[in-house]
């Protein structure tokens, strides 16, 4: 396993269509495949937002149940599974944080204050992608990576990212566009 960029996993696309097909056919097993494919991303999001491993696990569990219940509502003509599961994980996590904040009399900035209990780091799961992560870390601008992480895994809105990083909201959009373009380029190689 070298540090060179790895090819995009084309089997991932086949897996997505397979999962979607199973959902439409009412095949219960879709959840297992979905978990394998997106569980890591979902978990990273729930950890990133709740900042607690225990809460993250509960939120992930809740998200999976929601996915199950709402599978028939997924419209493949309007979104890919990634967007859908990311939204569910994020919203469930944000709801959790919000309700927790409501329960705690003093709720300050819950997202910034809580210590990160579970560290999310380099993947040990998918060997194909380890090299990719290193390349990206190396090649991408640090602030761009931060923007991506905040939007992807920490539940921040564009506005919040702009505020925290002290940049115009338009720049957040432009930077994320550039970052993903770079990702796409590396993945082609």
């Amino acid at each position: 396993m070298t540090a060179a960029a790895t090819k995009p996993d084309s089997s991932g696309k086949l897996l997505e269509s397979r999962i979607v097909q199973m959902m439409y056919n009412g095949d219960k097993q879709f959840l297992d495949l979905l978990y394998k494919e997106y569980g890591g991303i979902m978990y990273k999001i729930t950890v990133g937002i709740t900042k607690s491993q225990e809460a993250a696990e509960d939120v992930l569990q809740e998200s999976l149940v929601k996915i199950w219940k709402n599978a028939s509502r997924f419209d493949a003509s309007k979104a890919k599974l990634l967007t859908w599961v990311v939204q569910i994980a994020k919203n469930t996590a944000l709801d959790f944080v919000k309700s927790k904040a409501n329960r705690n009399a003093q709720s300050t900035d819950t997202m910034a204050d809580k210590p990160i209990v579970a560290a999310y780091g380099v993947s040990t799961q998918n060997e194909d992608h380890i090299g990719l992560h290193e390349v990206i870390k190396e090649k991408l601008d640090e602030r761009d990576q931060r923007i991506l992480t905040m939007l992807y895994f920490e539940g921040y809105t564009q506005k919040e990212v702009a505020e925290r990083l002290d940049m115009p909201i338009g720049s957040v959009k432009t930077r994320i566009r550039m970052t993903v373009n770079q990702l796409r380029t590396y993945l082609k190689n």
Binding site: G12, K44, T124, L187
Partner: peptide, 19 residues
């Protein structure tokens, strides 16, 4: 697709327990 691959590269598979 690109975001999916990237996301997988920086995340860890959570325990099957949760599923």
């Amino acid at each position: 697709d690109a975001l999916g691959v990237y996301g997988q590269s920086v995340s860890e598979q959570p325990s099957m327990d949760i599923l």
